[in-house]
Amino acid sequence: MHIAGALLAVAAAGGPAAGPADAPTVMPTRFEAGHFFAVPRTVDGQGLRLIVDTGGGGGAGLYWLSGATAQRLGLKTSRCTIGGERLEVAPLPRYAPGQGLPAPESPCGPVLLVNAQFRPNAASGDGQLGAGYLPGRVWTFDYPARRLVLEPPAWQPDPAAHATPLGFRRDAKGHLESGFPRLTIRVDGQPLDMLLDTGATAHPTAAGKKASGTPTVGGYGVTSYITTSMLEHWHQAHPDWRVVDQGDDLFGPTHATRLIRVPAVEIAGWSVGPVWFTERPDRAFHVFMSSMMDKRVEGAVGGNVFGHFAMTIDYPHEKVYFRCRKGCRAAR
């Protein structure tokens, strides 16, 4: 979806608690086994639980709620055309002071998307702040501190942080077509283009959890993804890298996939590891995700890598900064 020019503005009433304009804004957030969930609350005391997912869908600068959640909140839906697509939207909930979200702006005004097909669940909650909504601002995902921060416009990176560029899909005129960020990591000395995916979700089987030790809440945790062909390449080149058959069953026990343990991953000049990757079919990334990105990607980097860092995504300048907080070292 076309999201060029989509801006994020903090609502004058009901937005997150903030200090001066040049101060960071700590978002109302819950941290669950490596995932960030925004947890705004309405004036009548109803709570929401929205996964913050850089690799999740959506568009037009908006976040989205499930149809059931919009109904629970009493939001009246309507239709609005954005970028040639007719979308189901609803007015923003009336958030309690200091317990809201930065209000989206779109050609339809301050509204949100309604996903009628989605059903609230433990993995994604009531909806999502995704790749349609997050671009346009600077966000810090401080994993060890379990804080999500909206940085002020004058934000400057910590000198101790390491930066790496991000890639985004743009049209012929340079307008942003997709908010899915691509970054490059190195595994076994080789560069790999990957989706930056704070929402990459694991559902380890008993065997997968025993091997990987992945923390979970309600059976769900975080992971990083790798295509079948790259997993096979790694396994053939390094038969000592442990592989767990049927290690993850996010898509059900009849579709269980493998895990592979990679000794080290280099990201923005840092080295972390070991890192477990969850197998995904080639077409999921080579075809589906790559069709929405500026280059072909080989998988996704998720919270099991980011958990070592305070990670700041500077969407306007197309960079991501990693400040080492635990268990990382400068790559050679």
Rank of each mutant, 00 (worst) to 15 (best):
residue 313 I to Q: 00
residue 269 G to Y: 04
residue 98 G to D: 08
residue 6 A to H: 04
residue 249 D to I: 01
residue 253 P to L: 14
residue 207 A to I: 14
residue 33 A to T: 11
residue 88 E to P: 02
residue 310 A to T: 08
residue 211 A to T: 08
residue 140 T to Y: 02
residue 88 E to G: 06
residue 141 F to I: 07
residue 173 K to P: 05
residue 210 K to A: 15
residue 7 L to S: 13
residue 158 D to C: 12
residue 288 F to D: 14
residue 216 T to S: 04
residue 301 V to A: 09
residue 121 N to M: 09
residue 231 L to R: 10
residue 163 A to H: 07
residue 268 A to C: 10
residue 130 G to Y: 00
residue 236 Q to R: 15
residue 242 R to A: 13
residue 72 R to T: 13
residue 20 P to K: 15
residue 1 M to V: 15
residue 117 Q to E: 13
residue 145 A to F: 03
residue 109 G to F: 09
residue 257 T to F: 05
residue 154 A to S: 15
residue 26 V to Y: 00
residue 152 P to M: 09
residue 156 Q to H: 11
residue 249 D to F: 05
residue 103 A to G: 08
residue 185 I to P: 05
residue 232 E to H: 09
residue 254 T to Y: 04
residue 102 P to W: 01
residue 33 A to E: 05
residue 301 V to T: 05
residue 95 Y to Q: 04
residue 275 V to F: 03
residue 83 G to C: 03
residue 61 G to L: 03
residue 37 F to G: 00
residue 183 L to T: 15
residue 330 A to T: 15
residue 82 I to L: 14
residue 77 T to H: 05
residue 132 G to N: 02
residue 99 Q to T: 06
residue 124 S to N: 12
residue 303 G to W: 01
residue 216 T to Q: 04
residue 163 A to T: 10
residue 223 T to W: 00
residue 38 A to D: 02
residue 145 A to G: 12
residue 50 L to V: 11
residue 151 E to W: 08
residue 238 H to I: 12
residue 207 A to R: 10
residue 191 P to M: 11
residue 211 A to F: 12
residue 225 Y to V: 13
residue 276 W to M: 00
residue 1 M to D: 04
residue 55 G to F: 01
residue 182 R to I: 08
residue 121 N to C: 10
residue 311 M to W: 04
residue 241 W to M: 04
residue 157 P to W: 10
residue 272 V to F: 08
residue 321 Y to W: 13
residue 202 A to V: 11
residue 91 P to Y: 06
residue 57 G to L: 02
residue 38 A to P: 00
residue 262 V to C: 01
residue 247 G to T: 03
residue 127 G to L: 04
residue 332 R to V: 08
residue 63 Y to T: 08
residue 181 P to S: 09
residue 200 A to Y: 03
residue 171 D to Y: 02
residue 328 C to A: 14
residue 280 R to T: 11
residue 198 T to G: 04
residue 29 T to G: 09
residue 295 K to F: 06
residue 226 I to C: 07
residue 190 Q to L: 14
residue 201 T to W: 00
residue 161 A to F: 04
residue 300 A to E: 01
residue 129 L to E: 03
residue 223 T to I: 14
residue 319 K to I: 07
residue 213 G to K: 14
residue 263 P to A: 12
residue 242 R to I: 03
residue 319 K to F: 02
residue 322 F to E: 04
residue 252 G to S: 08
residue 88 E to I: 13
residue 4 A to R: 09
residue 273 G to A: 07
residue 232 E to Q: 14
residue 256 A to Y: 11
residue 175 H to S: 14
residue 78 S to H: 13
residue 314 D to H: 03
residue 42 T to Q: 14
